[in-house]
């Protein structure tokens, strides 16, 4: 299968790329890793008139850890995260990375591209929702920082404007009393999640939950943050019962569809089980930092 014809642009600098977007952002699709876009083009689910390849832009492949923040440039690949020591600063991120796609696809696919694509079955958006990430959107005349919650609008839709490009993804690092996890039920390596659950916990000095993050993959028409479940955890002392309560809330809030991966009832049940397990694993890590 082959894509329809398109025009190809390969700017050499960020300024050049942004000016292309400024002039013809409506017709230009950004090609980063291409691991979702190119298959869609081959199946002709997508036929953009113009592709702008940003892979030649210099200096956009760094993972930086500064002042409690983990920062991914636009061209950071999934496998860069898998191999990065810096990325271990956020446990949800580092545990999710090996579950994204398959090892060869991870060599090209990018974190930022995955978020901009916003497939509700994608893993990264849940990770970012659970950890409270924010994105830097850059255009030729401005730059803004957007919370992930605001960035993701609906499936395959974000609030990135046609003249903008995601240039950075910022994730808060976990403190020594923090932990996180990503539980994914996939039928095989490379499969989209039947259910994915991202969890993140920060404990206070006394061992209570200071901050909690829970977000779900593939069980709603977009990646779903579950504030109700997070609220049930915050301020409380971690226990199996507490995690079960939060998990139960998550399973009630989601709204999965029945398909070949399983019935809605089954997926709801897995959300319950995996949220509980993810919180337990997150806590396992976080409590190691308690003195």
């Amino acid at each position: 299968m082959y894509p329809a014809k398109f025009d190809y642009l390969a700017p050499e600098t960020l300024e050049e790329a942004l000016s292309i977007l400024h002039e013809r952002g409506d017709e230009v699709k950004i090609l980063a890793g291409g691991q979702s876009l190119i298959p869609m083009m081959k199946l002709r689910f997508a036929s953009p008139p113009t592709l702008m390849d940003i892979n030649r832009l210099p200096g956009l492949s760094r993972i930086n850890r500064t002042n409690g923040t983990l920062e991914f440039d636009a061209l950071v690949r999934h496998n860069d995260v898998v191999k990065s020591d810096a990325a271990k600063a956020n446990h949800t991120v580092s545990r999710a990375a090996p579950w994204v796609a398959d090892p060869i696809v991870r060599n090209l696919g990018t974190v930022a591209g995955s978020l901009a694509h916003h497939d509700p079955e994608g893993d990264w958006a849940s990770v970012m929702l659970a950890t409270g990430a924010e994105l830097v959107l850059t255009s030729s005349d401005s730059q803004r920082t957007v919370k992930i919650d605001d960035f993701l609008v609906d499936m395959f839709t974000t609030n990135c404007l046609p003249n903008e490009m995601v240039t950075k993804v910022r994730v808060p690092a976990h403190s020594s009393r923090g932990g996180g996890d990503y539980q994914k039920l996939e039928r095989k390596v490379g499969d989209y999640a039947t259910v994915g659950v991202a969890t993140s916990l920060e404990l206070d000095e006394g061992g209570r939950v200071a901050k909690a993050g829970i977000a779900l993959t593939s069980v709603f028409h977009h990646n779903l943050k579950v504030p109700e479940a997070e609220a049930a955890l915050e301020g409380e002392r971690p226990s199996d019962e507490l995690f079960a309560e939060a998990a139960n809330i998550a399973s009630q809030v989601c709204d999965p569809a029945s398909d070949v991966r399983g019935s809605a009832e089954y997926k709801r049940h897995v959300v319950d089980v995996f949220t509980r397990r993810g919180l337990a694993k997150s806590y396992e890590t976080a409590k190691g930092g308690l003195t």
Binding site: L43, D102, R187, K188, V189, G190, D191, Y192, V260
Partner: peptide, 28 residues
């Protein structure tokens, strides 16, 4: 464990590519 072809009630094939027609990898 995973590999099969099914159809919806309109006769659309589900399992028409390797994202839906699942072949185990070395991992599974």
């Amino acid at each position: 464990s995973m590999q099969y072809i099914t159809f919806d009630e309109s006769g659309n094939c589900i399992g028409s590519n390797f994202m839906d027609y699942l072949i185990p990898t070395a991992w599974e």
